[in-house]
Design a protein around this nucleic acid. Structure first.
Lengths: 224, 224
DNA sequence: CGGAGTCTGTGACCAAGTCACCAAGGATCA
DNA sequence: TGATCCTTGGTGACTTGGTCACAGACTCCG
């Protein structure tokens, strides 16, 4: 494995040679197409996944049948929250869906446990990833409770836009992402359109006035 | 230390003798009065706390100046989320306030790190505690997004009531717990009163019809 | 007794979620 | 080429919840 994947994760570059060897030998690279269910509630996670390419969205299957979007894992990050359940042999209430074709490193429970035991650097990597996700969850809760919908939508649009300023998502999809109803998204987008910030077409939103959106987000002091 | 505290934590009873010894030697019992700030944002946590007596409430200091209640740590549980930040040398955005006089075991970072490295049982204990808290956070988010306020308030009242069915809390306090406004609590409690479920007096709520509250909670399929 | 501070009640108003229904765009297939 | 169906988006009426302003009422003390 020349040009090892390990170096794409900043937290792992400091690993000593023997640990690197064990990590490389005890893990493998896996792929999945867009839209695949990466992990699901009720099924024990047997691997820690480190994303090399693509994005995975993690959402909670609600009892009420609706989904709550929790967070998005990008290339270079890990689905680390599953590991708690992995090591604790507990079930997970969330599911992960690949949004694009993804490539990831799968570290099986055995290797993971062994490395956590042996390597302080690896431990720090894991716990750092944890604390990131956890503080993310805290700010998510904060946003849900205190932030206005228009601000949250504006922030999310800026985040999801591709390099041409286009967001590929239906109103319903944006609704689940923000934990609100489709109608609310529709109304808010009409308002944004009225202000000349967006143009709409079926299944996509064109950001024509990013400055306006950014100003709205900033004025509310949102956590982008 | 006869009758060691270790056995009050089910996950730790399986620890081998040498690890127990290290844990006992490398930790100490601390106390704090009711209302003390146990940990705060911006100050690195240097100890993992395992609660022996009392309760600690953990809440996020919001940018907007208001607080969001996250969860409550009871005797026999640990403030484990702080450990991620502890090991990762990262700051924490939440603060912990003792609600009663508390007694706890403080495990310093050094001991903690060493034990996580040496003992698979201790690792499992830590990661189990993690996964509990994390899934709790997930259900919290779910509740905030989808559950009606009256149901959430009813559930919380049942949870907070002492053995005589009295909840000692002001409307404002219940408001922060549920991430809503005092006025909403007042209105909802009036409604509960109208239905004969509660009696009110300054600073406390008497549950006179727990069955009604329980029925409301149950009919909504809430996560108690 | 007389403030000062805290706790609760209330009305008006706005933001957001729910429900019901309709219309337009796209796909499929006889 | 239509007929049909599904998905997406638009809209109005209504309910719930959050915000603001202000007024009583209780408690603690000096």
């Amino acid at each position: 494995m020349p040009d090892t994947w390990i170096d794409t994760f900043p937290g792992l570059t400091r690993l000593p040679a023997d640990i690197r060897a064990e990590l490389e030998a005890g893990s493998q690279i896996v792929t999945a197409p867009a839209g695949a269910q990466i992990f699901a509630p009720g099924q024990t996670a047997d691997n820690l996944l480190l994303l090399l390419d693509g994005t995975v969205k993690v959402q909670q299957k609600s009892d009420t049948g609706r989904d709550v979007f929790l967070y998005r894992v990008h290339a270079g990050e890990s689905c680390v929250l599953t590991t708690a359940c992995m090591l604790a042999f507990e079930d997970y209430a969330a599911e992960g869906i690949s949004e694009t074709d993804v490539r990831a490193v799968a570290i099986p429970r055995k290797t993971f446990d062994s490395l956590v035991g042996k390597s302080p650097v690896f431990r720090e990597f894991v716990f750092t990833a944890y604390s990131r996700r956890i503080t993310d969850l805290f700010t998510l809760i904060d946003d849900i409770v205190f932030q206005r919908m228009d601000v949250r939508l504006a922030a999310r649009l800026l985040e999801l836009a591709d390099d041409r300023g286009v967001v590929h998502a239906t109103h319903a999809a944006l609704g689940t992402e923000l934990g609100t109803a489709r109608e609310v998204i529709s109304r808010t987008l009409s308002e944004f359109h009225r202000r000349g910030w967006v143009e709409q077409s079926r299944g996509e939103v064109h950001l024509t006035g990013k400055e306006g959106l950014a100003r709205l987000v900033k004025s509310a002091g949102a956590h982008v």
